[in-house]
Design a binder for these strands. Structure first.
Lengths: 346, 346
DNA sequence: CTGAAAGCGCTTACAG
DNA sequence: CTGAAAGCGCTTACAG
């Protein structure tokens, strides 16, 4: 009796959700070992007999097996994931740090889960939730300006946390950064040494730029210079904003003789617009940026800027986390410092 | 009988691995519902009665519960993770694309897991393994130059894949890019129109730069210009390499009158070194870069460059993946094109 | 609109 | 050096 060719419903390969991957049990079956042994081949290969190792590895290659870390992480409570919260990766300021951080972490067997926070501190809670839902084993934070609630939450999770790109007297856990306030102080001092009487500020109004501003303004005030023409604007900074910044600042105050910009991009705009207006830089107006982006030296030799070792921050932060995850204890506070780079006489 | 104060061993809060988080059952207990209902509050809130919803949300807030997506992903076979393989994030070329891609994906409820591949195609296999072990629901790839093995593997996984930053006749799945070859052709044509007789190339030897080179060299040859002075070097490109590039190229060939650089950074080095050598750009030598980085217009007005809409690539790629994950079908091939930007007469 | 049972694919802790 | 049993914290598919 020939059965009619019925439409064969796609067979469920798994009891649930029709998953289609190769599992550890498939490898185990082919290699003739138990799943535990296959697991050991990945997680503790030196505890497995050489021949067994070879046999399992062969089966792995044959099936193209890739362990499921969702399952592994759930079972072992080790996600091998590190969360990194960064405002943006669109500018090389943070992205170089992220690059080195990520490279270093992966060499140690961790993957980095990037959380791009933008510049608003408010949206950080949902972002943090999203990231923490993956159960990272450590957290890299950009900046230290977090709400007390957030700080408390992070502290309570009990995983290593490294705050970066800033200094703080009360870090959540580890700290690798530099003092924005001191940068402002030092730039003010250089300007003063040069005889500046009418300084101006063209700055983004984000936390860290404002800390530099404070150092700048307070130091100037200490030396009797109280009127700083200020142009504050929301991030992200751009060359166009720098151009506008110069125009505004010149409108606000006559005789401006020095401008502190919160980023090289803004400074580039200022210098560029100055050129258009036939204003001599640094002759008539000294300009200082921040970041020491790769192009500034060649593009804007007249520009003074602040150099921070961005790669070192990434590498050091990674090292701190790796050490801690490896069982190290103790406080970590690293001040990587900064450097004022004067291409020409300021 | 006063018991002696024995050292209290830290109580195991969980049967295994001493985990310490709040679980869905804790929330359920407090809210007086079953775990399934708590799960629904996160994954299908509109199927839950308003009062129940409120009660559960209150319990969630009280306990600071964050769902464990390792468990959720394992159970539902939905990781809500998208893998993005990118050579580097240290230069704004790719990082802007990554930024927009990541922003768009997170708005759709996905997180992006970044895999930084460097420029070597060989190390891609282990990186891919690492990334696939998280069971992403989709993959963003930079470039299309992958080994057949890798292409086959990716195809077999059966998840949506979008290749970007390049064109191909045989994409693995979806494609959002532009033709590097055609860029080379167009730059050659512009150079020829300008009367170039002795063109040179200063280029990184990565896949895509070499595709541009091919278009460039072949088009020149078609017009009888066969001797191109070439300086090829390994990525990453830098201003310093551009400077060296100019010197080398001038050594190799007398009378060079046009240089095609594989990146704006290299071009910046060339222009900068030319200035030092008192060579008129673009008068004596026309220079064309690639990337249209934000600073080039202001820093190097004499520089011609190739503009690609990096943000659009990120946004479009994200949209493709989101649509597909939402059930859409059909082919996707998007050529975002490019634009030759001449700041001054070439 | 809500819940009891089973299962996702691993690893731990133990035993041998 | 290797394995049987139990469990990690969720969600699915069903039933009511």
């Amino acid at each position: 009796m020939a059965a009619s060719k019925s439409v064969d419903p796609a067979p469920m390969r798994r009891a649930r959700s029709g998953a289609k991957g190769v599992r550890i049990t498939d490898v185990a079956a082919i290699a003739g070992v138990s799943p535990i042994t296959v697991s050991r081949v990945f997680n503790a290969p030196d505890t497995v007999a050489p021949e067994t190792l070879a046999r399992v590895r062969h089966a792995v290659a044959e099936l193209g097996y890739v362990p499921n870390r969702l399952a592994g992480g759930l079972s072992s409570a080790k996600s091998r994931l590190i969360a990194a919260i960064v405002p943006t990766v669109a500018h090389s300021l943070f992205s170089e740090t992220v690059q080195v951080f990520s490279d270093t972490m992966s060499r140690a067997g961790y993957q980095v889960l990037l959380g791009l926070s933008g510049y608003s501190d408010e949206d950080e809670a949902p972002l943090l939730d999203a990231v923490l839902s993956r159960r990272p084993e450590g957290v890299f934070l950009t900046g230290v300006a977090h709400t007390p609630t957030l700080r408390e939450r992070l502290r309570k999770i009990g995983i290593p946390i490294v705050e970066t790109w800033d200094m703080s007297d009360d870090p959540i856990d580890m700290l690798v950064g530099f003092s924005h306030y001191r940068i402002g102080v030092m730039v003010a001092e250089r300007f003063l040494a040069r005889g500046t009487r009418r300084p101006a500020l063209v700055s983004a109004n984000d936390q860290r730029a404002l800390a530099r501003r404070r150092g700048f303004v307070e130091t100037l005030a200490k030396h009797g210079v109280n009127d700083v023409a200020e142009m504050l604007m929301p991030p992200p900074s751009s060359i166009a904003l720098g151009k506008e910044g110069l125009r505004r600042v010149l409108d606000m105050r006559a005789g401006v003789d020095a401008i502190f910009c919160s980023s090289d991009l803004l400074a580039l705009g200022v210098v560029s617009e100055a050129r258009r207006l036939a204003i001599d830089i640094p002759g008539r107006i000294a300009v200082c940026g921040f970041g020491d982006l790769e192009f500034t030296a060649d593009a804007m030799p007249a520009l003074t800027t602040v150099r921070v070792d961005r790669k070192r921050i990434g590498a050091t932060a990674a090292r701190c986390l790796i050490d801690r995850l490896g069982g190290a204890t103790g406080e970590t506070r690293v001040d990587v410092g900064f450097e004022l780079v004067e291409r020409e006489t300021l």
